[in-house]
Amino acid sequence: MENFEPKIIGFICKWCTSAGADLAGTSRMKYPPNMIPITVFCSSRIDPQYILWAFKNGADGVFMGGCHPNDCHYQDGNYKTMKRIPILKNLLKELGIEPERLRLAWISASEADKFKKTITEFTESIKKLGPLSINDK
C-alpha cells in the first residue's frame, strides 16, 4: 500500500481549469504527477458515464475542474456540471465506489495555487483510500 500510486483522470475545461493548470506550470509549482489531464471545451461536455468509464478502466480517482459559477465561457455549462456531479456521487455509493474518489472543483485561470493544492490534496486522499477495489476483480 505504501508504494501505491493512484491512477487519476482529470477532466478539465479549456478556459479556466486547464489555463489554471498551465499557470501552475509556468509558475513551476510542484504537485503529484498522478493525474492525467483530459482537456475539453467545457465541463458540461463530460457525460457522467465517462466518469464511470474511467473507474471501470482502472482509475482510482476522477477529478473534474470547471470555471467558477458565473464565469462559464458557455454561460451556464458549469451549473450543469454542478447538478450532475452530486447525483453521480450518490450513484457511486450504490456501486460500491467511495464518492470521495470523485472530486469537483472550480478553478479559474488565475488560481494556479488552488489547482496545485487541490490536486495535491486529492491525490493524497486517493492514496489514503487505496486502490479502487472493483479494479482488483
Binding site: 501552475a24 506550470g25 504527477p33 489531464p37
Partner: peptide, 18 residues
C-alpha cells in the same frame, strides 16, 4: 501538453516520463 502540465510541475523524472 507535456510541459506546463507535466515537466514543469514535478521533479520526479521517472513519474514525469510516465
Amino acid at each position: 501538453n507535456i510541459r506546463e502540465q507535466c515537466s514543469w510541475v514535478t521533479d520526479d523524472k521517472e513519474k514525469a516520463t510516465d
